[in-house]
Simulated scan of single mutants.
Amino acid sequence: MKFIIKTERGLENIVVNHLKDLVENFNYITSPDGYQGIVIVEAEEDIRDKILQIPEVDSVLKVDYEVETDFEKIVNMAEKIKEHINENETFAVETKKRGKQDFNSVDVNIVLGAKLKDLTNAEVNLTNPDKVIYVEVFKHKTYICIGKKDEYKGKKYTKEKINARTLFKKISIVQLPYLEDIKACRKFGEAIGRSAQAFEVKELIIAPKDKVDAYELMEFIKGVKIGQISRYEIQKKAYPFEIKKVPVYVHDLYQTVRDKRRNNRLLIITDPKGEEIIKIKDKLKEDLKKKKEIVVFCGSREGIPKGVFRFADYIIDLSPHMTFATEHAIPAALIALWTVFRESFDDDYEREDDKNIDQ
């Protein structure tokens, strides 16, 4: 049996040395064709469980078929692969191509996938398939590994997971700018811009509470832009769907309160003088689910002015006896709100189960 082990670059020999302590006889190749992060192991028995005892191992694939690296020969393996797929199952083909060939990964995915569909009548499911056909292409050899759903690697985006954007797309962040120190202004601005974009909130409002130094505010906003763009560029590469930049505005704090204090809006202030979230979460989670917009006010060097407290629906102490640094306010608040919001879906599920039991 052959296995393809994937690890961090430079850890190939460490994996082999640890495997020698667990398995008596096996052959191996590290960095085949010069590609780091790969170890190909051959043993007489199934040693996947032993391989996965090594923390340096990211994932392991059992090789079901081996073929010469030639496009026609690879896609013709559909005749053998079909034996592993039932008509009532879904499948996906994932190809990892290394080196220069006269075909690309997409070619293999499309043609091999189409052949398998014709041969098995099974449906293709790229999001959450029952079986995955991993095609690992090297310079001279190609290995085909067939796994069950999530057997080898977890999925980031599945229907079983509730999309956090369900909440975050309704949240407007009102942020007091960090001012008075030019160098720090840009530094904290970057962190805030990065956080707002990371959570893909509805909007970020920079809200001074009174007259401020224009150049300090300028540096802060420059930092917000730098942080936002850096995160946005990462998101474009990491996500399999379209990402939009979070709109950023400047508005007077008190006028923002007036504008946002409307029907079907929820105003939340995070402050050490507030209530513990555990004590209000039952009511809060219902409001988070029902309200059209959730407005979260975050302080900086100074907290939100006390006069604004009268207009808030909730004043929440996220971590009693502790205060968060300016750059941590947005992530801390949004993660706390998501945790509460997520419970509302579990409650609905439980209530539906209760109905079924009663019936």
Score class of each variant (00 low, 15 high):
His321Thr: 12
Lys245Cys: 06
Glu352Pro: 02
Thr270Glu: 03
Ile173Tyr: 01
Asn88Trp: 10
Lys170Thr: 09
Leu288Arg: 04
Glu151Met: 09
Trp338Leu: 14
Pro55Asp: 15
Tyr134Arg: 11
Asp252Arg: 03
Ile146Phe: 08
Lys161Gly: 02
Leu116Lys: 07
Lys183Tyr: 04
Leu11Lys: 15
Glu94Ile: 15
Thr323Trp: 08
Phe3Leu: 04
Tyr249Met: 07
Lys6Ile: 08
Val132Cys: 02
Glu68Ala: 11
Met218His: 10
Val295Ala: 09
Val57Ile: 10
Lys187Leu: 06
Ala184Tyr: 03
Lys159Gln: 08
Asp21Phe: 03
Lys211Pro: 00
Glu276Arg: 14
Val23His: 02
Val296His: 04
Arg186Asp: 09
Lys244Ile: 08
Glu190Val: 02
Pro305Met: 12
His18Val: 01
Thr158Ile: 13
Tyr134Ser: 08
Asn86Ser: 13
Arg48His: 00
Asp271Pro: 07
Val63Met: 10
Ala207Leu: 05
Thr120Ser: 02
Thr270Gly: 08
Ile269Ser: 08
Ile85Glu: 02
Asn128Met: 06
Lys20Ile: 06
Asp58His: 05
Lys209Asp: 08
Gly154Ile: 07
Glu83Ile: 00
Glu8Pro: 00
Ile47Arg: 08
Leu284Lys: 01
Ile81Cys: 05
Asn121Leu: 11
Ile315Met: 12
Val108Met: 03
Ile146Cys: 06
Lys245Asp: 06
Asp33Ala: 09
Cys185Trp: 02
Ala207Gln: 04
Ile229Phe: 14
Glu203Ile: 00
Lys292Gly: 08
Ala214Phe: 07
Phe168Ser: 03
Lys50Leu: 15
Asp64Asn: 15
